[in-house]
């Protein structure tokens, strides 16, 4: 079965999500693919920066090169340019020639100082909690033809799906990590409870009452108090053992010859 270029790109971007460990790494790889794709359309070397803004988080920036990241950040200190405008208006914004355009004078001046004479901002459709845009840069003015702008918008449409997925995966991974940390924290309290039960020959609920009372009296977090009790009793900090899928097989699953 023949695969369309769009499907091929989607598979490539999905592989990037699987192959990278963080949203930031994914954005860097995505910017590389975007730069290569639009360089072919424009017929010249193009660099790409990508900015992702998530609700209640600072912006994450990736680039096809260090210079692309640097160019992408110019808008943060020189004021808005095509990328921020594209994010705001949700349409592609072309700055064809920094020498003759009059829309963003300070931004254009900074771009020219970096040897960049044209830029194209293309928004990616995400969701209410996040927004992202691709920012293409070239040293030569006027390289983004109508066809190249169309290609960039087509790329952004597919890339938007991949960015949404990458953000979702990262969020789930983050929640899983938090849950694991939280579950580890509970271990100290449960162990301390057992120690108090043994020392006082009391029930679990009575032991918890003793612990909470001591925590209140000392004005100390229950978890910290529990950790102290465990260290005092065993000489070492409490540990939680998770049986991971990647760990050694369970003895019952091993075969002997």
């Amino acid at each position: 079965m023949a695969i369309s270029p769009e499907q091929e790109l989607l598979v490539q971007l999905q592989d990037l999500i699987i192959g990278t460990d963080s949203v930031s790494d994914f954005l860097t790889s995505l910017a590389g693919v975007a730069a290569a794709t639009i360089s072919r359309s424009a017929g010249t070397d193009v660099e790409c920066g990508v900015t992702l803004k998530r609700h209640r988080a600072s912006a994450t920036v990736g680039g096809s090169s260090d210079r692309a990241v640097e160019l992408d950040r110019i808008e943060q200190y020189a004021g808005p340019g095509p990328c921020m405008t594209a994010l705001r208006t949700q349409t592609s914004v072309l700055l064809g020639d920094t020498r003759s355009d009059s829309r963003w004078p300070e931004y254009q001046k900074q771009l020219m100082e970096h040897g960049c004479f044209t830029t194209l901002g293309v928004p990616m459709e995400l969701n209410q909690e996040a927004s992202a845009a691709l920012n293409f840069f070239a040293s030569q003015a006027g390289v983004f033809s109508e066809a190249a702008v169309r290609d960039a918008a087509g790329f952004a449409e597919i890339a938007g799906h991949a960015v949404r997925l990458a953000v979702k995966v990262a969020t789930i991974q983050g929640v899983a990590q938090d849950m694991e940390t939280a579950m580890k924290s509970r271990t100290a309290i449960d162990l301390a409870c057992g120690i108090v039960m043994a020392q006082n020959r009391c029930t679990q609920s009575e032991a918890m009452k003793i612990l909470t009372k001591a925590s209140s009296t000392r004005n100390q977090k229950l978890r910290d108090l529990a950790e102290e009790i465990v260290v005092k009793a065993s000489g070492e900090k409490p540990q939680t053992h998770f049986d991971r899928a990647t760990s050694k097989p369970h003895p019952a699953q091993t075969t002997t010859n």
């Binding site: 939280a182 579950m183 978890r223």
Partner: peptide, 15 residues
């Protein structure tokens, strides 16, 4: 709304 579960896990983690 998804924060309810995580906040509860931290609540359990603290006793």
């Amino acid at each position: 709304h998804s924060s309810l579960c995580l906040l509860w896990v931290w609540y359990r983690a603290n006793g």
